[in-house]
């Protein structure tokens, strides 16, 4: 292995000198990065401003901001049915609701779990693994696990019937489908953020609590005045990361409900996916993804700003 690479690299070093070898080391990564990440990012702008059903750039018509205007063409953005692209706005609305509720679930339960796991208890490692395990499962597997649980003759309906209720068509009712997409999403993600919060909790120096005890804190006040303020930087990271990830919700919903019933669980990435790869309207889809990228960029800048302020503090 070493010999083969040496055979390639040694003459290069002789030719360019050892300082310039940095470029050689960067080359493979930057080549792939440039072709498959950077170039598509730039091309996306072009797609967003062109029309036509061909994916080839030469066959596309430049139409300026028409695609974006079409997406934003609404009588009232609070009522998707008044929009030219009503499915886009339904997707935006659903995504908004999803982000707010899922992130709230993740932060609240993630924090409670992290606090519980931060206590010196027997079996802490076991509990930590159990809470983390769903994070490893692929979105497809997560969706199938929940589909099996929620189907008409599934375990959950069996529990409801045995408690005297009647079966609920969980995935065929819009409201319930939304509810379970959120719950299963939080179920699959929470362990990851719990770990980050736990690391944050463990970085709080224990002598602070001892000092607090001398000053007469009780568990509630020490949480309020020691834990919470010192955990804030971690909380911001968790908040922004979970929002960025929630905005991009796609895979597990695609398998669990495929956006249905109707457009009850249609989210923004699925709108982009179906518009591009099923309706072949690449321009409109690219325009929508530009808007999504804009939102993600704002969130990222927000996170970096906060991170810097936290670092400075």
């Amino acid at each position: 292995m070493l010999g083969v690479f040496d055979y390639v690299f040694e003459p290069l070093e002789k030719r360019f000198g050892f300082q310039r070898m940095a470029y050689i080391f960067l080359l493979p990564n930057m080549l792939i990065f440039g072709i498959f990440i950077l170039l598509p990012m730039l091309l996306n702008f072009y797609y967003g401003f062109t029309a036509g059903d061909s994916i080839l750039l030469g066959n596309r018509r430049f139409i300026g901001t028409d695609n974006i205007a079409k997406l934003l063409d609404c009588v009232s953005i609070f009522d998707p049915s008044t929009c030219n692209q009503d499915r886009f706005w339904r997707g935006v609305g659903n995504t908004g609701l999803f982000v707010v509720t899922e992130v709230a679930l993740i932060v609240v339960f993630g924090l409670i779990t992290a606090l519980a796991l931060n206590r010196k208890l027997f079996g802490r490692g076991f509990f930590r693994s159990m809470f983390f395990y769903p994070v490893l499962l692929s979105p497809v597997v997560v969706a199938l696990i929940w589909k099996w649980l929620l189907q008409q003759d599934g375990l959950l309906n069996a529990v409801i019937v045995s408690a005297g209720g009647t079966r609920v068509p969980f995935l065929l009712d819009g409201g319930w489908a939304q509810f379970w997409v959120i719950v299963s999403g939080a179920w699959a993600q929470m362990g990851f953020f719990t770990l980050i919060l736990l690391a944050g909790l463990q970085s709080i120096p224990p002598d602070l609590y001892e000092a607090g005890q001398i000053d007469g804190t009780n568990p509630l006040t020490s949480f309020r005045f020691i834990t919470l303020p010192l955990l804030m930087p971690t909380m911001f990271v968790v908040l922004v990361l979970s929002i960025i990830r929630a905005v991009q919700i796609f895979d597990h919903v695609y398998v669990l409900t495929n956006g249905g019933p109707g457009s009850a669980t249609l989210y923004i990435v699925q709108y982009i996916y179906t518009t591009a790869f099923q309706n072949r309207n690449y321009g409109l889809a690219a325009a929508a993804s530009l808007l999504l990228a804009l939102v993600l960029m704002i969130l990222t800048v927000f996170q970096l700003r906060l991170g810097r302020r936290v670092d400075a503090a």
């Binding site: 498959f36 990440i37 170039l39 996306n44 797609y47 994916i55 990228a293």
Partner: peptide, 25 residues
């Protein structure tokens, strides 16, 4: 170079699906 790499840290596949597919094509 490092800044460019860093700035794409948060760009998900879902945002560049269409042009990335074109490149692959």
């Amino acid at each position: 170079i490092f800044l460019i790499i860093l700035s794409t840290l948060m760009v998900p596949v879902s945002v560049i699906l269409i042009p990335a597919f074109l490149v692959i094509n």
